[in-house]
Design a protein around this nucleic acid. Sequence first.
DNA 1: CATGAATGAGAATTCATTCAT
DNA 2: TATGAATGAATTCTCATTCAT
Lengths: 189, 189, 189, 189
Amino acid sequence: MNASPRRKELTRLAAQLFVQEGFDRTTVRMLAQEMGIKSGSLFHHFKDKQEILAAVIEEGTQNALIIARKALDECAADPEIRLRTMARAHLETLFTDRNAHVVALFEWRRLDPEARAHLSHLRDAYEALWVTVIDDALEAGLIRGDRFLVSRFVLGALNWTVRWYDPNGPRSPDDLADELVAMIMPAST
Amino acid sequence: MNASPRRKELTRLAAQLFVQEGFDRTTVRMLAQEMGIKSGSLFHHFKDKQEILAAVIEEGTQNALIIARKALDECAADPEIRLRTMARAHLETLFTDRNAHVVALFEWRRLDPEARAHLSHLRDAYEALWVTVIDDALEAGLIRGDRFLVSRFVLGALNWTVRWYDPNGPRSPDDLADELVAMIMPAST
Amino acid sequence: MNASPRRKELTRLAAQLFVQEGFDRTTVRMLAQEMGIKSGSLFHHFKDKQEILAAVIEEGTQNALIIARKALDECAADPEIRLRTMARAHLETLFTDRNAHVVALFEWRRLDPEARAHLSHLRDAYEALWVTVIDDALEAGLIRGDRFLVSRFVLGALNWTVRWYDPNGPRSPDDLADELVAMIMPAST
Amino acid sequence: MNASPRRKELTRLAAQLFVQEGFDRTTVRMLAQEMGIKSGSLFHHFKDKQEILAAVIEEGTQNALIIARKALDECAADPEIRLRTMARAHLETLFTDRNAHVVALFEWRRLDPEARAHLSHLRDAYEALWVTVIDDALEAGLIRGDRFLVSRFVLGALNWTVRWYDPNGPRSPDDLADELVAMIMPAST
DNA sequence: CATGAATGAGAATTCATTCAT
DNA sequence: TATGAATGAATTCTCATTCAT
């Protein structure tokens, strides 16, 4: 709702702590300290600890959506390129805005029902992008299988990277994306 | 350590609660109630809340290892069959022993360092099985790509199923496994 | 560390309860009630139950040190007078600040190692005062014996008074002190 | 009451733990373990944790009484020798049966009222011995002062030794006793 | 006598949240 | 906006004691 720059900064710091410690284990005092204020003051910026979680996830998902849309808008219409672009965009957000996304992926269950309902829309919008890209690739014969299953598998493989990918290692996120796309395309020759 | 049948039963119930509520949100009182004892009695069977978590994960991982080994032992030596078998075994454990596995996948971070070290060995042993299967498939030209990346992608896609797969839906876990294998094999013709 | 007047008052009340019930038997709830706050609020002022104990003992020992130093500074240089002064000062603190001292004497073992180390310094400083006084008395031929033993015996006799002395009885603390000094001086004639 | 040799052994072990940890901090489980049985079994030997404490103190006080009586019976009738003998006997029991005595001295408050009443008699009997010895010494002009105060001071000085005396150091308990007696006798020349 | 499992009444401590200043 | 003190409900864990076997 409120999107003051201060609040945005606080959200960023909260994301980091939520990733490090998990939502439940992150105390309001830890959040406040990280933000350089006292715990009482936090409640001037956020109604709730819940609201902080929602802010983190909303921020992350919204960014992902923007980046993906922009990337798709800017790239060629070729299905293979679009697939690759989407995979790259996904990993790019996942690692530039990693904290928010890890929170979105692994603390979703901690959201209260209202927030969950609100944010589900955003999440669905993002997944819808994927479905169109997958559909096009299927239609073009680039890949085979059930559209639903394929998109789930691909998203799973991509999301799971947060568990093992080391950004300081030799491979770039773009490499990863390309490898995944290559893996599921029968014959890129 | 201690493996009384009572403890095993308690572990199973704990897994269920951990999945429903998350580890941090599951109180020892909830655990005790589910087990039909009083919270004080819990500490006869487990030293700690932590130890319950470790027991759940150990149990689950050990089962997965046993099932996968047995399945591989019993199946033919053909790389494609082995790959399919491994994927099926993975999903089978994931859904027959779902609770333990969801806990293992999503509450791993809540383990204390010692338990984590201990259980890492088990986890590694399991992943090693995957790597051999993937290696064979690569060598046989069934699939292409980096062995490390491929196994990570496949495991990610499979593990992520716990987030969306509905066992009461039209597809069986074996279907899922077959579809995934088909997806990554260039040309099964 | 923190020496807010509030904390000082709380420390005083804690000392009383620790004497009445013993440290281990005094619950934080009892402490809080005596202080007119709720148990949770206690931890705003003290990190720990341990810290309360340490505060009580520190407060008491510091007072004893100040009183003894001042008394010695103000009295004549005559060894006998100094000895009597020190004994009187000891009993004076022992009975004006009785609670803190009883805690210091009988709950010392309940301190955790760090607090013990910290407070040992204070205690040593106080005992050092005694040793100089005893040394002077020995040198002047007022008393005889090993300086170490004599000071231990004298301190023992004085400290033990908290076990039997009744402040409402006929004798004043100063009487006690004088009697003790008389007892150990061969011939005051 | 019951004085089986087994019970006596258990009492000895309990005394040790009570000294090491303090009565309140010694759990029934610790006691049982030290005794090589399980905590449930302890209650076949003692009705209560309280009863163990009472047994420890009773045992110790009774021994002190026996030793002191025997020592006085065997020594000459000379008041100075009797005084020295009593002091030596006190320290001897204090250090051969140290644990029981430290418990008696420092955990007395933890006794419940009945046990306290019962054991007070024993304690009084022991102190009565002291008073006769002190009286004789006063009458003989060996020492001066109020009989009550003198005996309190002497007992205090002796009891306090458990706080600082190192049995492995150069001085024997008998040395200590002699030094104390010398200290309070005007002119032993 | 011994045991192991269970109990239930606390114990210390934590923590999101409130609110007067 | 910020703070610091307070709250109260909840949390993990402890422990003397009981009792069926």
